[in-house]
């Protein structure tokens, strides 16, 4: 295809992506180094006869509004927002470092800082859920593949539901069941033997609940991909392995898993990207008191009456750096493959 033709074909989608993906990134970068204007203060002298004069400092509403309208971005503050307490908190980390005696107290104090708290949950969630859902997905795929034909279709249908349903809806459905008055919740209460037992009250259990939701909602994706992979399994290799006396476990280990390896990489890549942006379950499970994620703190900054654009932007940039680090091995590998081919 000629460059010219390609250009015209690609133009609409390129414009959409430039305007609404590339431009916002630039805009987020710029906003993150500007802070909102401080109120303009004026000194007013109040003179009352007999008492004398006092000077009062007041907010000049009009001047403040004018300034905010003239420069909606705010004032340039460089990297200050990144370094303040709500984000990287360099000063606080330094202080904690110098005053903490043990590692335990160091970490527990670090995790009280909002950014690190969100970071720790996001990373834990991503790196627990992703391998777990791959293993579970593989097990379901192997089990379903050995079923009768009619059962297979039914299983695929119901397996797709947790994945396809809106994440907020899926988490709400589970949340209502584990509510202390819900069916699973009351079962857990009677198991624990403590009438005040609640999943929502403990940080550890909240994390477990969110992670279980994560696995429940994404395992079907891994299952469907692996199941499709099993349909293209080379029959000859498997039969050869059987003739050579390979046990079932050996067949899985040395024939099936190597055949599925590219698919495992694919699922891992997609799921790392998706789990890193975990947000909806935290809202659905109403869990923000015990678990916050990077996406959640951005949304929290943006919501409400005071939209803290600068803070949200700084958090967005930090999140994007996280995504870049996560994605870099893939990009490096793709780049090497590409260079080898050309």
């Amino acid at each position: 295809m000629k460059h010219r033709t390609f250009f015209w074909f690609f133009l609409p989608t390129a414009i959409a992506m430039l305007l609404f993906i590339a431009a916002p990134i630039v805009s987020v970068l710029i906003q993150s180094v500007f802070a909102p204007h401080e109120a303009v203060l004026i000194e007013v002298e109040n003179c009352t006869p007999l008492v004398g004069c006092t000077t009062e400092t007041m907010i000049d509403q009009e001047a403040t509004r004018d300034l905010r309208e003239a420069q909606p971005l705010g004032r340039f503050v460089g990297l200050d927002i990144y370094l303040d307490r709500a984000h990287l908190a360099i000063e606080e980390v330094g202080q904690i470092w110098s005053t903490s005696e043990t590692w335990g107290s160091f970490w527990s104090r670090i995790f009280n800082l909002p950014f690190y708290r969100a970071m720790s949950f996001t990373l834990t969630y991503t790196f627990v859920v992703t391998p777990a859902l791959i293993v579970l997905g593989l097990m379901i795929a192997l089990a379903v593949n050995s079923l009768h034909r009619h059962l297979k279709g039914l299983m695929i249908f119901f397996s797709l539901l947790p994945m396809i349903v809106t994440p907020i809806i899926g988490s709400l459905i589970l949340f209502w069941m584990v509510d202390s008055r819900g069916v699973l919740g009351s079962a857990l209460v009677s198991l624990a033997g403590d009438p005040n037992f609640s999943l929502k009250a403990s940080t550890g259990l909240t994390w477990v609940m969110l992670i279980i939701y994560g696995i429940w909602s994404s395992a079907p994706f891994a299952f469907v991909v692996f199941y499709a992979g099993l349909q293209t399994l080379p029959r000859d290799t498997l039969e050869a392995a059987q003739i050579d006396g390979a046990t079932r476990w050996q067949q899985v280990r040395y024939v099936i898993i190597p055949h599925l390896t590219p698919l495992v990489t694919f699922v891992a890549l997609i799921q790392l990207m998706d789990n890193f942006r975990v947000l909806e379950p935290i809202i659905g499970f109403n869990a923000s008191a015990h678990a916050t994620s990077l996406s959640w703190i951005i949304l929290n900054d943006l919501g409400g009456e005071t939209r803290q654009l600068s803070s949200a932007s700084a958090n967005s940039v930090l999140t994007l750096i996280g995504v870049a680090i996560l994605l870099s091995p893939v990009l490096v590998r793709t780049w090497q493959d590409f260079k080898r081919k050309t």
């Binding site: 993906i21 990134i25 630039v26 990077l294 951005i298 949304l299 943006l302 949200a312 994007l320 994605l327």
Partner: peptide, 17 residues
């Protein structure tokens, strides 16, 4: 790369304009 970016990171960029 665009696919990997969480949509919420872009929202802060939309609001002001």
């Amino acid at each position: 790369i665009f696919r990997a970016m969480p949509p919420v990171t872009l929202v802060a960029g939309y609001l002001l304009p």
